[in-house]
Design a protein around this nucleic acid. Structure first.
Lengths: 180, 180
DNA sequence: CACGGCATGTAATAAGTTACATGATTTA
DNA sequence: TAAATCATGTAACTTATTACATGCCGTG
């Protein structure tokens, strides 16, 4: 499962442009797979070469042409196969936790900042996931699972980080306590 | 924060061989950063070129020479700088969640399998983290944070997946219910 | 005697990130 | 008038993955 296959996945529920697909990544995949234009556009080109998608050029008034991609039969089949053969890996790469691991080498203020930054990221993710759950248009009930999965984890982590931050501030010098 | 810097991080608390460093990744970094020999050995070579580490060859009886790497002053400084300048990213790439997102295209049995596989991975991770917490030799109290962080999330996810699996089985055909 | 652990590495490939490059439209 | 959105893409770079290549030791 790479960007290419996820693009096929998006296209399996209807035609879309590269730009649309990017938006779909943002709204539905963000919590488990990140991709930018720099990986989506090349992916679509390769899918086109391989005959997994077809493209239709739409002229627009004053805006650049839109390229609408449409999945082919071969594309559907390839996606199905990829789905069936994919091993359900789940990887985390966290520079945040690396930083925390070596927090004894850092000034307390910086650790506190990192905690704050991470906390607000978690909170934003939680809000996005909750809103997505509310806008139920996305609920192909598989989408539900991945959203709830991330929500469960995110909520638990917010509580944890909040608690650790308090502890951390209590153990630090007063001038930092003031900052927070 | 990449493999190179994490190697420096390991070496900042004492000399080690590439093999040792790999073991350290397994035992302490696994839950937030994965690296194999294929990235660790080249990383050490580059660190050597850059003068951030020094190496001493140890001859061993009947075993291949051991190369003991030792961090230099410049290495410590570079690590410190990297630590101070690193942005606390936290990225998840999950083929498991991708699979679940498109679970409506898969046979129920395969979804159930993926759920089982993921669940046992989570349980294993939980056990490892709990054991690491028990063996307190690793507790440079920064290590504590990252372990607890992952533990909190993992425990919440185990509960969630357990619940979802039951629901999923209840909604599926009886022959699958038997399997599980 | 097979398997896991000890011990090092390279080479080919795949993959993704970042910055660059352009430019009109809409909204605050 | 500044910023966000729409819309496409390329090129250079960095990074990590995978498989390959070797070989001894200890344990069951």
């Amino acid at each position: 499962m790479d960007v290419k296959h996820l693009c096929l996945g998006v296209l399996s529920s209807g035609p879309a442009s590269g730009y649309d697909i990017k938006k779909h990544f943002e709204s539905s995949f963000k919590h488990f797979f990140v991709a930018g234009y720099g990986s989506i556009y090349p992916a679509l080109s390769r899918l086109l070469e391989q005959g997994y998608v077809e493209v239709e050029r739409l002229q627009q008034d004053r805006l650049p042409d839109k390229k609408i991609y449409c999945i082919t039969g071969a594309g559907r089949k390839a996606f199905q196969t990829a789905l069936e053969n994919s091993v359900p890996r789940h990887k985390i790469r966290s520079e945040f936790l690396a930083m925390m691991h070596f927090s004894h080498l850092l000034p307390a203020a910086q650790v506190c900042d990192a905690l704050d930054v991470h906390l607000s990221e978690l909170q934003q993710l939680r809000d996005n996931l909750e809103q997505a759950a509310a806008d139920k248009k996305l609920s192909a009930h598989g989408g539900d699972f991945s959203r709830h999965y991330s929500l469960v984890s995110t909520k638990a982590l917010i509580d944890f980080v909040l608690g650790e931050k308090s502890k951390f501030i209590a153990n630090s010098s007063p001038n930092i306590a003031v900052k927070a």
